[in-house]
Design a binder for these strands. Structure first.
Lengths: 338, 338
DNA sequence: ATGAAAGCGCTAACAC
DNA sequence: GTGTTAGCGCTTTCAT
């Protein structure tokens, strides 16, 4: 069942059918009705692959996230989906599993399937994936993780501000020995999250202790493991900040396992504020990130580029969204005598 | 940059380039090398849209879920993604938001984009979407919600068994007045989940009280709202079961708000066992559903149909996955004196 | 082992 | 207002 078939059945040419299907003005009201009737009766659905080949656009956007097991990304995805559906675009979803090769493979796959644009939350700062994206001539938006020294379009959250805010708050509450659990980023430099943590420390005249800094893949288990290690290595700390709430949940688990009370024995601040973190006991103090907005705005910005390809390529816009400390129950004031 | 271009640069015809790109045997080792070199140098990426048009297959699978805000679905999605990536397929992801029209629109969209197959968790039993799917001639798999009187391929969980198991357990623990929060399904019949609940009740000689049965969209807020209503209507109940853990979280919230203790004042059993439910206080007793497996197997079965389209259409296989009661801390034995 | 040519289903100039 | 036709980038039969 193709357009030629519909044309025959309605006694017109395929161009005419094409015209009515695309709401072109120049078609007689009666022929239009006639064609529409046939389309209706046959249940004909146009072949968008053929259409895409001709038009050189697919109305689909590729999305690459490291890990769809993390609620953070799902929330972002919801925002993306919302905007894209409004604009009649589809999502082609890929997961990189924090694997550079899979990221690369996925990008090529998306490119070969001719997506009109790509939204990516890169595995690493300056990953090979980002480099590929840059030479590919497909509009793309980076999200979540800002890229150092890179002029790309993106909607970001300032990770260093998140950790700095969290650390400041902990220090104001009397904590000095603060552990940080960040995400593993294969870059040469320290992650932004750790940078912000160090900045806060230094602003308060506190020495950095490297044994308090750990990087890992952000999931519950690794949060648990990190604290377990810290404890079994007898590292002293009274508070911890994590780069995502999932990691914080792992910390809760470890605390429970080793008989440490939150916040009495350990204070903890998460980051991203997933919907479930307020239901923990105690409710998690965390840094709120506008996840849905992050997605929505990413899609919005990307679509702007997709729609006018002629736009000066050299320009690029970076938007940094606001974050906010959400005080709940997982931080406690530490007295000097403690 | 297309195949013709590559052909010129390597001094061969497009057919030859196509052959090396598709690993056809019949090509001289030297020409192959020559072509591969050019491909490498130019960074040429084949146009899969053109390829798809010719081959009538896209190597992409459409997935339609009601709500990606619910962790249940993204666990299923993870399973799907895993299998599909192994087999070199992409996912086109759609959300129906429990909206029948959006479901319909999405199915048509996927059809027009010529996905090789569709995995859908339908909004309702016997929804219009399912009907569309059936006449569409695209292989599809239903997941999550089994369809009454419908012979379709699917990987399911027996919702009535879930609720029956939960209710049994509550009754064994002395509860008689048990509320049930199920998902809103626009069908004429009661939802499977409520059916299983009623079966358990009747097997134990307990009268059904309709004021204890509520159906809503499954999210945290509605769980909260339901309990709030029950309380303000002075409906007596000592336990509640919910069709998903998210709803149970809402119940926790309501309990806290109205000064009811779990499990002392209300016992509760969830359903699906999302990763975070064990971190609630008390940890949620729930029915485990093999979410990742559900997704993986759905993809696996679908791919079987996609790969041999010639297979007898009339056959269909339905697999029902096992569920399991996970006893944690949200259920308490009710004494007669209570 | 390689090339020429047809055709996948559609759109859009162009002609009428 | 409508039809004819070329062509989007690829694969594949057929010929050589």
């Amino acid at each position: 069942m193709d357009i030629t078939h519909i044309a025959k059945l309605s006694g017109v040419s395929k161009s005419t059918v094409s015209r009515v299907l695309n709401n072109s003005k120049k078609v007689n009201i009666n022929t239009r009705k006639k064609v529409l009737k046939v389309v209706e009766d046959t249940g004909y659905i146009p072949n968008n692959i053929a259409r895409s080949l001709k038009l050189k656009k697919t109305k689909t956007i590729g999305v690459i996230f490291p890990d769809i097991g993390n609620p953070f990304y799902f929330e972002v995805l919801r925002g993306i989906e919302k905007k894209l559906y409004e604009e009649d675009f589809n999502i082609m979803l890929c997961t990189s599993d924090y694997d550079d090769n899979k990221e690369l493979t996925n990008i090529s796959l998306l490119a070969s399937k001719k997506v009109d644009g790509i939204i990516a939350a890169p595995n690493y700062e300056n990953s090979r994936g980002v480099a590929l994206l840059q030479k590919l001539d497909i509009p793309f938006i980076l999200t979540d993780l800002p890229q150092d020294n890179l002029k790309t379009n993106g909607i970001f959250v300032d990770h260093s501000k998140c950790s700095c805010t969290a650390t400041d708050y902990l220090i104001e509450n009397g904590h000095r020995r603060i552990a940080v659990i960040s995400a593993k980023r294969n870059a040469d430099t320290t992650s932004k999250f750790v940078q912000g943590y160090m900045r806060s420390l230094s602003e308060h005249g506190i020495q950095v202790d490297n044994s308090l800094i750990v990087e890992c893949y952000p999931n519950i288990y690794n949060g648990y493991l990190t604290i377990k290690e810290l404890i079994s290595n007898k590292i002293d700390f009274s508070a911890v900040i994590t780069i995502c709430d999932l990691l914080a949940i792992g910390v809760y688990k470890a605390a429970r396992r080793f008989g440490l009370k939150i916040p009495e024995d350990i204070s903890i601040i998460g980051n991203d504020n997933i919907p479930l973190s307020k239901f923990l006991t105690p409710p998690l103090t965390t840094i709120h990130q506008p996840k849905i907005l992050l997605g929505y705005k990413s899609a919005e910005l990307l679509l702007r580029y997709v729609k006018n390809k002629d736009k000066p390529k050299k320009s690029h816009s970076t938007v940094t969204l606001d974050i906010k400390l959400i005080k709940r129950g997982s931080v406690r004031r530490k007295d000097d005598k403690d």
